[in-house]
Design a protein around this nucleic acid. Sequence first.
DNA 1: CTGCAAGTTGAAGTCCGCTTCAACTCAAGG
DNA 2: CCTTGAGTTGAAGCGGACTTCAACTTGCAG
Lengths: 154, 154
Amino acid sequence: MHESLTIGQLSTRSGVAPSALRYYERLGLIRAERTGGNQRRYARTELRRVAFIRISQQVGISLEEIREALDSLPASRTPSAEDWARLSAAWRERLTEKIRLMTKLRDDLDGCIGCGCLSLRRCTLYNPDDSLSGEGSGARLMLPRPAADPAPAA
Amino acid sequence: MHESLTIGQLSTRSGVAPSALRYYERLGLIRAERTGGNQRRYARTELRRVAFIRISQQVGISLEEIREALDSLPASRTPSAEDWARLSAAWRERLTEKIRLMTKLRDDLDGCIGCGCLSLRRCTLYNPDDSLSGEGSGARLMLPRPAADPAPAA
DNA sequence: CTGCAAGTTGAAGTCCGCTTCAACTCAAGG
DNA sequence: CCTTGAGTTGAAGCGGACTTCAACTTGCAG
């Protein structure tokens, strides 16, 4: 158990379910060698990739974007500390921006809902576009124009 | 167009698609009267409910939880500023907690990924349970125990 | 060599928050 | 009255991130 890890081992060590690891592989986020009997064997470096994936998810980044980021790592050599640092630097900015928006939301919450005005449009709170919305999944919070529904409104 | 709003009007004024409004109604988040011809007519107070819903979503609260919160509003009278303030107070705490976690994540990102260590378990970053995860949609980030898959690991 | 845990696959299911569609009906101006 | 835009319904679809299942195969300890 030195050279490589089974999927169970990687799962245990990363805290990520085997099914999720297979899913990540399908999406091209991680890679595995195969044994003669077709079982996955992970290089230890995959542990770091998995860590990066989970942390990125906490930042609110989609797997697709994470994949793009990972794709930018050097293919030829094992990624260095600098490589990882470069990736996380970008995340850091997003995180900072997110924190900024949430802080604004909290402050507005005091002034705006707190007072009971809740007047939407006028209120900085009600601002679908700048969104803390990396979060929401399938649903786009609001389309540029609400070209939805048979008959939206005047 | 004084007493009540059509769904199109509510949509325009709230910025929420009619289909979403109908969806909210199905979930019991908002209510509407009906005309003789079975069309929805919204009281103006529903505007505030919709505002509250959207803002709550930005805080990262699920529609189900938002429904519970709205259910706690007085049914007999029109909710007062204090009623809304009470609800938003709870959100405020969650928002603050979230900001705290994200800030921690950002700081750790510098020290932990930044240096290239990324050592998972040891790292405060890698902490599925305290989660900034109100965000993620359908997917539970990690079950208490990963009792998933035919054979998870030892 | 046996027995059983761990691993394999593809297909289908789940959850959330909506959107889209088809097939109507309603409401209001010309 | 007729047209047209706005509204109605239930059912189905979507996107993202997985999980679950059934039906097998591997790998290793005893």
